[in-house]
Design a protein around this nucleic acid. Structure first.
Lengths: 157, 157
DNA sequence: CACCTTGCTGCAAGGGGTTGCAAGATAGGC
DNA sequence: GCCTATCTTGCAACCCCTTGCAGCAAGGTG
């Protein structure tokens, strides 16, 4: 009841050591991205990250960001999924495993908790031995409010 | 017990009339793509379609194919989804609504029948009023055989 | 059959994302 | 503090896909 769980910041501070242990290097570019990520919550697209990094350092190049994100994913610090248009989205420090719900009319996105998907995940595991990677799942459809207002499918899907 | 259901071909033959009715035109480029689609089963990527069309007509351009596919989707003759890499995949003549299961290790894809997803679809509808568009869903994970052989996540995700 | 309206095509350019490679920088050893 | 092995970066090029636009052609009309 006394000590709160260690703040996420600690995990980011430890990134440098995580890299060192593996013989990887701590470069200004990586530091910039890690700092941006530490300030980000929830979901960010790769393009957003590139833009934010360019504010901190205008010389930022996209390929470096993509490669660094890939590396951070291997360390388990971020997790990427594909949004409705197939664009990459990153979840920072994915503590709870979750998927996404996306409305194809209004474009909003919600998190899909593991408990909600439990049925499907369990069924696929039992019936096919298939292990679902929830963080990679985006369920597309129409949200309650768009259904209610009887909005039709927009141009983009 | 006598008459089999009308072959899919009939639907393709009718495309021309479908277009006429809407004041749209029946062009050689559209005819080529429709012929290719009539010969295709299951899932095809956009790139595959472009390649096949170029065999029939080397002057085929990608933008025309993408625009024609979009049009055919509005007519309900194809349906597109996003594969694991975010690339577009098309289902031809989607009679049964289904999603996809994709193994991130071996890259294989299976169909996810509506019955299997019923639980999730129903739960989301009850809890959130969210109507799932199954054809747009790709569930990523590891298939039984890859789990069994203890294969680790490959480079690509 | 020639004409005209309007939908369609092809091009070129741009955006998101990936990759090969040569040049550059980290960090360990001396 | 310098040197070097090797990991990273930045560049350029490429792939998939989308879009604006000018010119073309389908197909209805007289």
């Amino acid at each position: 009841m006394i000590a709160p769980p260690p703040p996420a910041l600690d995990q980011w501070a430890a990134v440098r050591d995580l890299l060192h242990v593996r013989g990887m290097r701590w470069t200004p570019q990586r530091r910039t991205l890690v700092e941006i990520l530490a300030k980000s919550d929830g979901h960010v697209t790769a393009v957003e990250l590139i833009e934010r990094c360019r504010i901190a350092d205008p010389t930022t190049t996209a390929s470096t960001i993509y490669r660094t994100l890939e590396m951070l994913e291997e360390l388990g610090l971020v997790r990427h999924g594909h949004g409705p248009e197939g664009r990459q989205e990153f979840h920072v420090l994915p503590d709870r495993d979750h998927g996404h719900l996306h409305c194809e009319i209004c474009g909003q996105t919600w998190e899909l908790e593991a408990t909600e998907a439990k049925g499907l995940v369990g069924a696929l595991r039992r019936a096919r031995g298939f292990r679902v990677d929830l963080s990679h799942v985006t369920i597309v459809g129409r949200c309650a409010s768009c259904v209610e207002h009887n909005l039709e499918r927009a141009s983009t899907t």
